[in-house]
Design a binder for these strands. Sequence first.
DNA 1: ATATAATTGTGAACTAAGTCACGACTTATT
DNA 2: AATAAGTCGTGACTTAGTTCACAATTATAT
Lengths: 221, 221
Amino acid sequence: MMEQNKIPQATAKRLPLYYRFINNLNHQGKKRVSSKELSDAVKVDSATIRRDFSYFGALGKKGYGYNVEYLLEFFRKTLDQDETTEVALIGVGNLGTAFLHYNFMKNNNIAIKMAFDSNPEKVGTMVSDVPVYHIEELEDRLGDIKVAILTIPGSEAQPMADHLVNRGVEGILNFTPARITVPKHIRVHHIDLAVELQALVYFLKHYPLITEDEEEEVPMD
Amino acid sequence: MMEQNKIPQATAKRLPLYYRFINNLNHQGKKRVSSKELSDAVKVDSATIRRDFSYFGALGKKGYGYNVEYLLEFFRKTLDQDETTEVALIGVGNLGTAFLHYNFMKNNNIAIKMAFDSNPEKVGTMVSDVPVYHIEELEDRLGDIKVAILTIPGSEAQPMADHLVNRGVEGILNFTPARITVPKHIRVHHIDLAVELQALVYFLKHYPLITEDEEEEVPMD
DNA sequence: ATATAATTGTGAACTAAGTCACGACTTATT
DNA sequence: AATAAGTCGTGACTTAGTTCACAATTATAT
């Protein structure tokens, strides 16, 4: 479980990104890749990429770069791509539906196993092969799913989070504007669309723009 | 434009969050608030909140806390809540539609002015009072909009970004999995749903869980 | 009045993340 | 074989962000 827990969180967040691009390269039949090439593709400084990889040991060869197949195999294991992670989606609105249509299996080996909604028109339907149950059924249907995506109105976020935690959920991806309170052993990631948009607007208005012919790089989030 | 550009990016990203909660407090008729109370609500350490506020000067009073009305007024100005920011949305799929239904005016004074799609069934309709135009019309319709939300398939992200930049867009909120390349003076924020989900799964599996009776805090996001 | 409790603002310390720059090694070239 | 070019891994440094902890101030209670 915590074999290599020295990996910085910032690094861990980049791993899925690396994985996806290495996967692409592999499909393109590429055999080797340098940190510089990867850097151009994922827009992360090449030294940062080398540092990130180095937390897992010496994955590359000096003067050569990284072997794509080896890297892919390594990250597949590291990211637990062997066992599919099942998640539940709570709230089949537009945002929830967007998730249901997204194919997380291809690159991430994550499957949305079921969805819940309170709207009787949606209950009983299938969206992208995912069954939609009534929220009342959560108790019975959830099984041992440990991860939930919350795409419901903010006002319902806290009670729903409480319910999920009681039911054994350990990780919540919260798309509601509400900042939910959970026991310490539960992990919550907030993605707040309004905050993201407003932050972008704020940066645009308040941070110096760098004109095209200057050398400096703009940090890309 | 860059009056107070000493504000750390991490702080800037929290401002919209603070603003929203202070707004809520104001609606509830609350007159004063402490950094501790705010901390409980937004799940940010109270010292961090005080530090964040302090970049803007002494907004509070020792032994008292912060005056809600004053704080709200201050942040309204700071976040440019006076002039509405107009944005365009590219791609009226489920995710795009979710954005169109979101009311950014209420707390953020941001308005999605128009949307674009290539699907003739959608072109010409209104979604939440926002007109949907054909992508071909972008040239003529965009006007002087500076911010775009990209909710299209990844394969179309780069050409569309190029197009937007040519048309004068300076900020892009990119929801596609593609990491787009833009001139240095353009700001791009990536929100990659698959990465977010997989990162959550990774943290759950690899980071030590803290049991309920231990003291330590788990970093939240 | 006086004492007690609450709370800010911030210097200093700490922690996390990012970048530089170079020795060591690999591959390609002549 | 020798040289040149390419590339990693990493120690040292830099930058960014967070948290501690406390003097100063304000509010509240007695």
